[in-house]
Amino acid sequence: MSKVDLKEIAKQEEELTGGHRLCSGCGASIIVRQVMRATEDPVVVGIATGCLEVSTTIYPYTAWKGSFIHNAFENVAATISGAESAFRSLKRQGKLEGDTKFLAIGGDGGTYDIGFQSLSGALERGHDMVYLCYDNGAYMNTGIQRSSATPRNASTSTSPDGEVIPGKQQFKKELTDIVAAHNIPYVAQASPHNFRDLIKKARKAFEVEGPAFLNVLAQCPRGWRHPEGEGLDILRAATDTCFWPLFEVENGEWKLNYIPREKAPITDWLKPQGRFKHLFKDKNKYLIDEIQEHVDQRWETLLHRTGEK
């Protein structure tokens, strides 16, 4: 990987300009701005239908400085596959010169759920592209419905906390592991509060030949129900509690990128978010224990898989 000079990177021109209509405190735009600083080549960006897409391309305006395409909800990986194939074909025929990067972006709904098949197909075919998932753990664009990325017991508009059911019933799908099982050159999990780590990972993702996947936790003040200014602190708690471990899989080699000196209790992650508020009622305390147990098991698995234990 080429050297990441954060000072130099900070001087780079913004690819996603201000004036877009994302909510204040939204994680998606922070992530995109960090990721896009990791390359100096022109980037063709494709986005699945979702918050980021509808908020940045309200016709006749666009917040994107470079080439951008939105096709539909479930097919950003296939769409960017097509663009990348066009590039390869035209370059081979001598009709194009220079280097271009291809970046497909989806939220968790467009990646874990409806876009899963398209993603898997594109990864298997080996297109030279980066897929970035900004995972805010629900269908935020349509009003906070649960997805397979929604954490256990989060209250969403389709998995509400009720008299008999305390929010979402299932644990989150481990999509990063599933993507790693495609044996692509680079897979990583990251968070924008640790921008050095995220930008480094994005750099690696852009530089490898073949598909790379970045799964990045993104705060959503509306969906997570927290004050707009607290997002990055909550993301930090996600990594300190090991709810969202930062790791990468480089050519099959698993590596943890952050091991907290002392694992923080899961309540540090749950407490600041209104979507978990009901867990702190007496009758639901056992659910917090179950979540803690699940996080502990997952962390143990990762420690073994990465050779830390």
């Binding site: 096709n71 296939a78 596959s81 097509g82 066009a86 098949q117």
Partner: peptide
């Protein structure tokens, strides 16, 4: 591609790229 949905989606991406 892994489906016709992706066949048409990739065709859109390719055609928008000038292919």
């Amino acid at each position: 591609v892994e489906s016709e949905h992706s066949a048409m989606s990739a065709s859109v991406g390719a055609s928008a790229s000038g292919a």
